[in-house]
C-alpha cells in the first residue's frame, strides 16, 4: 500500500512506533469496523478510529441528536440537535479524516438485519445503551465468529471486554438480560460525561490492537473501573461451558430480539 506524503505525515506517530510501523498502519488503513451506537461510547470510538485512519467505519444508530446527549456524546454539537446521529457522526469523521470511508445505517440493529450488516466488518464495537441489543450484538458476533468489544457505563463506572472466537463472550458472564427496572439506565441514574470518553477510548485502543496484532487483548477478562477512586480492576474469566450461546451445548442458535419494555422473549428466524 502506498501512502501519500500527507498520509505519511498524518500517521507519522503510528509509523514511529516499533510495534506499528508502516505495516501496522497498512493494516489499520485496510480495517473495517462497525460501531453500533453513535452515542456516548460510539463518539470517542468513532473519533479515535477515524484519527487512526481505519479504512472503513460503519455506524448504526436510529436516533436523532438530543440536547441531553451533548454532555457526553462529543461527536455531536449544538447545531446538530434533531439531526440523525449517524449523519452528524459522518460529517465530523469526514472532517477529521477524509481517508475514512464512512457507511451509515440509520436504523436499529435487529435480529433480522444484524447478520447481514456485521458480515462486512472485521470487528464490531458495542456502543449501545440497552441490554437487549447488547445481547443481540453478542449473539450475532459469536454465531458469525466476529470479534467484538462490549462496553457499558453508568454513573461513575465503566466496564468492557473483548471477545474473539473461542474466548469468553458477554453471555459467559451475564447469561441473560436483567429483568426490566432491576438496573437503572443513565437517563435514570445519570452518568459523568467523561466516563464515556474513558471507556470508549479503551474500546478504540482494543480495536487498533486487534487490527495491528499488538499487545494482549482484553479477552477472557472484564476490565472495570470506578472513576471516583480511579480504581481499575481486571477480572479474569473464561469461556463458560454452560454459556447459552458459546458453551458446549448452546441453547441459543438463533438471534433473539428481547422486548425493550418487557421481559418476553421473541424468537425470529
Amino acid at each position: 500500500m502506498n501512502f501519500t506524503e500527507d498520509q505519511i505525515i498524518r500517521y507519522s506517530r503510528h509509523i514511529l512506533l516499533q510495534d506499528v510501523g508502516v505495516d501496522g498502519q497498512e493494516k489499520i488503513s485496510k480495517g473495517k469496523v462497525l460501531i453500533v451506537g453513535a452515542g456516548g461510547l460510539g463518539a470517542p470510538v468513532a473519533f479515535y478510529l477515524a484519527a487512526a485512519g481505519v479504512g472503513t467505519i460503519g455506524i448504526i444508530d436510529g436516533d436523532v441528536v438530543d440536547l441531553s446527549n451533548l454532555q457526553r456524546q462529543i461527536i455531536h454539537f449544538t447545531q446538530d440537535v434533531d439531526k440523525p446521529k449517524v449523519l452528524s457522526a459522518k460529517e465530523k469523521i469526514s472532517q477529521l479524516n477524509p481517508d475514512v470511508n464512512v457507511i451509515t445505517y440509520q436504523t436499529l440493529l435487529s435480529s433480522e438485519n444484524a447478520p447481514e450488516i456485521i458480515n462486512d466488518y472485521d470487528f464490531v464495537v458495542d456502543g449501545t445503551d440497552n441490554f437487549p441489543v447488547k445481547f443481540l450484538i453478542n449473539d450475532a458476533c459469536v454465531i458469525a465468529g466476529k470479534p467484538f468489544s462490549h462496553g457499558g457505563i453508568l454513573r461513575f463506572d465503566g466496564q468492557t471486554l473483548t471477545h474473539v472466537p473461542g474466548t469468553a463472550c458477554y453471555r459467559c458472564l451475564f447469561h441473560a438480560p436483567p429483568p426490566p427496572n432491576a438496573v437503572p439506565t443513565c437517563s435514570q441514574a445519570g452518568v459523568l460525561g467523561a466516563i464515556a470518553g474513558m471507556l470508549g477510548t479503551i474500546q478504540a485502543a482494543e480495536v487498533l490492537k486487534y487490527l495491528t496484532g499488538v499487545g494482549e487483548l482484553l479477552t477472557n477478562k472484564l476490565l472495570s473501573f470506578n472513576a471516583k477512586t480511579m480504581e481499575f480492576r481486571t477480572i479474569k474469566t473464561k469461556r463458560s461451558e454452560k454459556c447459552p450461546v458459546c458453551g458446549s451445548n448452546p441453547t441459543i442458535t438463533q438471534l433473539v430480539d428481547y422486548a425493550q419494555a418487557a421481559c418476553e422473549i421473541k424468537t425470529k428466524r
Binding site: G39, L41, F131, L154, Q159, A182, V183, S187
Partner: peptide
C-alpha cells in the same frame, strides 16, 4: 468471588 454488575448506559431500559 466477583460480583459483576450490569451496566447498560444511556437512554432506554
Amino acid at each position: 468471588v466477583d460480583f459483576l454488575y450490569f451496566m447498560g448506559g444511556g437512554q432506554s431500559a
